[in-house]
């Protein structure tokens, strides 16, 4: 299954506004995307489009997460979502 790692760039971590932006972006993809902390088993990965899942994941700035997706458009979706995670949304 295609996967990517990304380092959380936002100062507040994957909380609040950054989590909302990411969940929204994940929900707009043509494929279902999962998210897990690096090192956690793939079958415990959470739905990346769920803001509540993202909040319970508790990823802080600098943490590395793994995104996974399968199907048509998975590669492009993952590339795009890595960009979203690696942008500091608290900088604005």
């Amino acid at each position: 299954m295609p996967e990517r790692t990304a380092t959380i760039a936002s100062r507040s971590g994957l909380h609040a506004r950054p989590a909302a932006l990411f969940a929204e972006a994940a929900g707009e993809q043509p494929v279902e995307v999962t998210i897990a902390m690096q090192g956690d088993p793939a079958d415990e990965a959470l739905d990346a489009a769920s803001i509540l899942s993202l909040m319970t994941l508790g990823a802080a700035q600098g943490d590395v997460v793994v995104l996974r997706a399968e199907g048509d458009g998975a590669e492009q979706a993952l590339d795009y979502l890595v960009q979203v995670l690696e942008t500091d949304h608290d900088a604005a």
Binding site: A16, R17, A19, A20, E24, D47, S50, I51, L52, S53
Partner: peptide
């Protein structure tokens, strides 16, 4: 605005 946007997303949250 930010609070309402996040709350809106919770309303149709897949996990919930």
């Amino acid at each position: 605005k930010a609070v309402l946007e996040a709350t809106a997303l919770m309303a149709r949250d897949t996990m919930l």
